[in-house]
């Protein structure tokens, strides 16, 4: 048995983290995580609009993992829902009067440059610019390789109360670990 599990929990507590998940994630799991987080937040009298923002960011982050994480295992039984299990990590916490959502997943190194450019571009936009950009993208065809509408990061940037933080940590010649933190 791990001796330091309690230590890990204490560490989470100190950082305000009240929810953590690491592993393969599915749409069904996303729905249940969303439901339980809504329940937890409503217990401590969070306004309904804040609850919806946190929920929305968690959904976007989880679905990004489902669509794009490069830590994946192909499933033998192919079905239309998903043909792979994709892994990632999601943390939700409350500190300094704000909720925050952090997520991470592996990304192939050759994809980093594009993503970095996209995120830096969003970091420099104010609320009005983000709204304009969101509306423009919504009417465009998604980028090649996109499995959604290509709006997830803009949506999260619009829900955040301060510019989001992100980073890439190299794991090997092929992949890095991508982390993103949104403060609501």
């Amino acid at each position: 048995m791990r001796k330091d599990l309690h230590e890990m929990k204490e560490d989470f507590n100190n950082q305000g983290i009240f929810f953590s998940f690491s592993g393969p994630i599915s749409q069904e799991l996303t729905v249940e995580i969303g439901e339980i987080l809504k329940k937890k937040m409503s217990l401590i009298e969070t306004g309904s609009s804040t609850i919806l923002k946190v929920f929305s960011v968690v959904v976007e982050q989880a679905q990004n993992i489902i669509h794009y994480s490069d830590e994946k295992i192909p499933l033998e039984e192919m079905n239309s829902e998903s043909d792979e299990l994709r892994f990632g990590i999601i943390l939700v916490g409350f500190k300094n009067d704000h909720y925050f959502v952090e997520c991470g997943n592996e990304i192939e190194n050759h994809k980093i440059e594009n993503l970095q450019k996209k995120l830096m571009n969003l970091q420099n936009m104010n609320k009005d610019e983000l709204k304009k950009h969101y509306k423009e993208q919504r009417r465009k065809d998604p980028d090649e390789g996109s499995k959604g509408a290509g709006l997830g990061f803009i949506e999260m940037a619009r829900k955040s109360s301060e510019p989001f933080e992100f980073g890439f940590k190299k794991i090997s010649e092929d992949v890095s670990f991508f982390s993103l933190k949104i403060v609501i």
């Binding site: 976007e60 679905q63 959604g148 709006l151």
Partner: peptide, 12 residues
């Protein structure tokens, strides 16, 4: 009451 970003595109 709520829709995700890819549903937002569908609604548009």
């Amino acid at each position: 009451i709520y829709f995700n970003s890819s549903s937002s595109k569908v609604l548009m």
